[in-house]
Design a protein around this nucleic acid. Sequence first.
DNA 1: TTCTAATTCATAATCATTACGATTTACATT
DNA 2: AATGTAAATCGTAATGATTATGAATTAGAA
Lengths: 137, 137
Amino acid sequence: MNRTRAWEILKAHGYKKTDKRELILSMFEETDKYLTARDLLEVLKKDYPGMSYDTIYRNLATFVELGILEETEFNGERNFRMHCEIDHHHHHFICMECGNVKEVSLCPIEKLEAMLPGYTIESHKFEIYGKCPQCNG
Amino acid sequence: MNRTRAWEILKAHGYKKTDKRELILSMFEETDKYLTARDLLEVLKKDYPGMSYDTIYRNLATFVELGILEETEFNGERNFRMHCEIDHHHHHFICMECGNVKEVSLCPIEKLEAMLPGYTIESHKFEIYGKCPQCNG
DNA sequence: TTCTAATTCATAATCATTACGATTTACATT
DNA sequence: AATGTAAATCGTAATGATTATGAATTAGAA
Ligand SMILES: [Mn+2]
Ligand SMILES: [Mn+2]
Ligand SMILES: [Zn+2]
Ligand SMILES: [Zn+2]
């Protein structure tokens, strides 16, 4: 996902183009790491000192709802990142040192479905945490 | 894990026997569901109206540290449950309707390790959410 | 029974997140 | 280009989970 595509989606749903949204999207575009609301505010405050958490959270919710961002939760905080381009189902290795993210295609959810008759699987979370090669030194 | 074993561990680490701990442990012993700090306080307030969140959280942290409880996070809250008896590595299907938990032995973490040379895997989370057979009707 | 460290209580602080009325702004329409 | 209006943002306060702290209580050893 990139900013251009994001704006197509936003427009298609009747959302207006604003500088704040543009800035938020550009922050996500230039990193593959997960960001928190706090991360965003910290940076946006430089350009917009009056920037409100309400604006951040409301837009994050919109972006997730429209599939522009993906969301997860670790270290007791909500984390967001640009939704992956990759079309096939996959998961992420997340470096707890630098935040870098690596795609992981292994997922046993289909096998699992067969092993749980009577159960309805609505969602699943498979996340791997550790240190990436750079941080391992 | 049961209360008796839990007390062995607590004693072995020099922790004292208190009524609050006994009650907390008994709550976990009699269900296989995940409980939040709020769930616990709600019940403990009946016997101990002055019961403090501090006591709950401090003991939960102790129990997790000693391997008596296991902890996870979903729906934006920390959730706790008695640590499983089962010795082999496994994960959980969690019913989002009734909270029931089912063991799931499928896990691709070892295969994954081989697929991520240079990476150090420190931990991983694999959780499946949905509806159990009873709640599906 | 006495002593002491562990535990709990009572309360406030902190942190992430949400809520809301007032104000401003994007953009469609004239 | 000016106008009207719904959308978006601001400013600020509320909420809810969690953590912190100092005083009071208590379990268990001596
Ligand atoms: Mn990805
Ligand atoms: Mn289990
Ligand atoms: Zn998967
Ligand atoms: Zn596993």
